[in-house]
């Protein structure tokens, strides 16, 4: 008996993996049904559904990048404190002091890459007409994921707290000032007033809610930190689960009828 067989026949191994190694057809089917991580997939698929030139693999890569971002993000959180006093210095320390410090690089480039792969995924889904019935709703879920991916990237942009960060967020969030009715420089905000007092001012409008202040400051950093590290990832994870569920319930990857 080889060492491999010995290990695979041990009680410990068998208690973890509830099936023999997937060497024959029967066990290759069983592995898909009994393994938690693999049961995301069906047991068998049509060749086209896994053809790289058809799916471009972009949905899969986007998902993988989301996982990479989660892991590197957690590592970064060990070092980073979202306060005016520490944010910038912690990032500096990450670069200069931390051993093998390319976590920030991987996190940042992974984020850029994820934005691009989401677009390409949407592009391919459109070009194969895969949003047509019965997959309409999964396309809608997809659009939400697209927005949230961009928001994840946007909220993360602020965290290094350098010039690049605060001005990009300032420019981006200045738009909220002009929200119709809800921004203090937006058309129609004057309508929301009680007895001559404006309800919408620069200390109560959409931008104020976004930033937690009248300009990009410590409250903004805190707000964006929580959005970036907790709130949005949770929503995204949930939506991805729904997205994948629907891919299977809608009959797998689209193909000609």
């Amino acid at each position: 008996m080889s060492v491999g067989d010995y290990i695979r026949n041990s009680q410990i191994w068998k208690s973890i993996f509830r099936h023999p190694a997937p060497y024959d057809r029967r066990n290759r089917v069983i592995v898909m049904l009994t393994n938690f991580f693999l049961h995301l997939h069906p047991v068998n698929v049509r060749q086209q559904g896994i053809s790289l030139s058809y799916t471009w693999c972009m949905g899969g890569i986007t998902f993988f990048l989301f996982l990479v971002e989660t892991i590197t993000g957690v590592l970064l959180m060990f070092y980073y404190r979202p306060t005016l006093e520490w944010a910038f210095n912690d990032i500096l320390a990450l670069r200069d002091v931390v051993t093998l410090g390319i976590m920030r690089e991987i996190h940042r480039w992974g984020a850029h890459a994820m934005v691009i792969t989401v677009w390409l995924h949407m592009y391919r889904v459109f070009l194969t007409g895969s949003y047509k019935p019965p997959r309409e709703f999964n396309w809608v879920v997809g659009v939400l994921l697209l927005v949230l991916t961009l928001l994840l990237s946007f909220t993360g942009y602020l965290l290094p707290w350098d010039q690049l960060a605060i001005w990009a967020i300032t420019v981006g969030s200045n738009m909220a000032r002009a929200t119709p009715f809800l921004g203090h420089e937006g058309p129609g905000y004057q309508i929301l007033n009680i007895g001559g007092y404006d309800l919408i001012t620069n200390a109560s409008d959409a931008r104020f809610i976004l930033l937690g202040g009248r300009f990009v400051g410590e409250e903004t950093l805190n707000r964006f930190y929580i959005l970036h590290c907790v709130a949005i990832p949770l929503v995204v994870a949930t939506l991805i689960a729904i997205h994948f569920w629907r891919v299977r319930k809608d009959g797998g990857i689209s193909q000609p009828l």
Partner: peptide, 13 residues
């Protein structure tokens, strides 16, 4: 476009 098993075809990809 015949059917193939996910393990190994997709899992390895």
């Amino acid at each position: 476009n015949e059917k193939v098993l996910v393990w190994p075809d997709l899992v390895y990809t």
